[in-house]
Amino acid sequence: MTPPVLEVQDLSISFGGLKAVAGFGLTLRPGALEGLIGPNGAGKTTVFNLLSGVYTADSGRFVLDGADLRGFSAYRISHAGIARTFQNIRVFSHLTVLENVLVGFHQSIRYGYWDAFLLTGRFRNDEAAMEQQALALLERVGLASRAGDNARDLPYGDQRRLEIARALATHPKVLLLDEPAAGLNTVEKEQLMGLIAKIRDEFKVAILVIEHDMKLVMGICERITVLDHGEVIATGTPKEIQSNPKVIEAYLGVS
């Protein structure tokens, strides 16, 4: 079996007295497409915040390709290869759609300030190449026609896809998607899930997706982890999860 690209062990964080995440563990193999589900307030977004360096875990570790990243700041985790989107959309609202994706290419920039100031060939070549790659990413998520528009003028669904393109620009090994289908209608949701599966295949990236719609998650994810009150209550294939009494209890709210 291939070694895992991401291995999370015993990750915990408390806010004041509240244990938001306790003893979280997960293993992602390269190219995996897995789901993270759980009732509202279960701690799903907090897990993403820990894995992307927005918060630093109180204890535990998460190892990406052999390097423990706990305690790293967010930009270094991004450089290492974990990218994410946000549940509460965070596009750069005053930048254009294209510029948003170009920011994602930040760490690929090789030219210096002087190149930019003197408009050297190196600067022009690098910028032209990045722009082409950015346009290709926008094409991939279906936003190429809106490249020149301000990001804040896009409908929410498009802003979420823009966040996906922007995250892919960082060349991630692991992509964390926080409710990418929120606010979409049923047809759009299915299209988006199809897109996510294709992205996994084309970019050879492992994807962990948070989604409330059970049917959708069950449809595309190979494995699912269920959180409740900050703790993992089940992990397994969609089939196993569906028939797990603990999961049913958590979702029916019998506690």
Binding site: Y75, V91, F92, H94, L102, A116
Partner: peptide, 20 residues
């Protein structure tokens, strides 16, 4: 690219940091 980074942090520091 450096200027875009500066403009990005004005719009959203958390997202800018997450983009590297």
């Amino acid at each position: 690219g450096r200027g875009r980074a500066i403009l990005a942090l004005r719009d959203d520091e958390t997202a800018a940091e997450a983009m590297g």
